[in-house]
């Protein structure tokens, strides 16, 4: 019964990634290699991030919100952006369109993130007899994270790969990318600074991810038009 629960939570956490890959044209163009490369880049980035966090951050004595530390954490969070940049621009991809490239990179990135951050707690926790909502919420969070990462990758590809974009949209793109990149800090602020509970935070993340996805999609299609 508890293995059943683990199975459910695993479906919720990792299912959407698989569905995304198989449902979209990504599977038709065989972009699996790109996703794997992105995942490897993610691993490297996570390592660098860990080293930075361990070097520059104090261990918090209590669970309170320390603005200076959080700012530092947000800055270190931008290493993610650098990693994405590397994955999008520096890696040699097979000949796939930009359109698919950013999706594949975002997908690989989000999947690696889920595996790295959620698989172990899930395995240890959800198999236990004790029932909590935590692992279901964590699965929902993984969904939100997938959407956010793909959005960020989309904006990243707009910023770095597309040369002729409408001038008026450039600041908006950068602003949105900034918001997406600081999303972990925002949720951390909500949880610790405002004392929100986990369900509320996850709800916010889901909502924010949908909103950001919509905005990114609009921006992407707006940039697509002139070239088309």
């Amino acid at each position: 019964m508890t293995v059943f629960h683990f199975f459910n939570c695993a479906i919720l956490t990792f299912g959407p990634h698989a569905v995304y890959y198989s449902a979209t044209p990504l599977s038709e163009y065989d972009t699996f290699g790109t996703s794997v490369k992105a995942a490897i880049v993610y691993l490297g980035t996570a390592l660098v991030k860990l080293v930075c966090l361990a070097t520059f951050l104090k261990v918090p004595e209590n669970d309170s919100f320390d603005p200076y530390q959080e700012l530092l954490k947000a800055l270190i969070g931008f290493i993610d952006v650098a990693g994405l940049y590397f994955a999008l621009t520096q890696l040699t991809h097979r000949n796939i369109s930009q359109n698919h490239k950013f999706q594949a990179v975002g997908l690989g990135w989000a999947f690696a993130d889920s595996v790295l951050h959620r698989l172990a707690p899930l395995w240890v926790g959800a198999r236990g007899l004790e029932f909590t909502w935590e692992y279901i919420l964590q699965g929902l969070e993984a969904n939100a994270n997938l959407v956010l990462t793909v959005s960020l990758a989309a904006l990243g590809s707009l910023m770095w790969l597309r040369k002729n974009k409408p001038r008026t949209l450039v600041p908006i793109i950068y602003a949105c990318a900034g918001i997406l990149a600081t999303m972990p800090s925002i949720t951390s602020y909500l949880r610790r600074g405002l004392g929100w509970h986990f369900p509320k935070v996850v709800g916010f993340e889901l909502f924010a991810s949908l909103a950001m996805a919509f905005i990114s999609w609009q921006l992407f299609s707006a940039c697509q038009k002139p070239s088309a």
Binding site: M1, H5, N8, L129, E130
Partner: peptide
């Protein structure tokens, strides 16, 4: 342990 039922799962 507080457990969920099979039906729930």
């Amino acid at each position: 342990y507080q457990v969920a039922s099979v039906t729930f799962d």
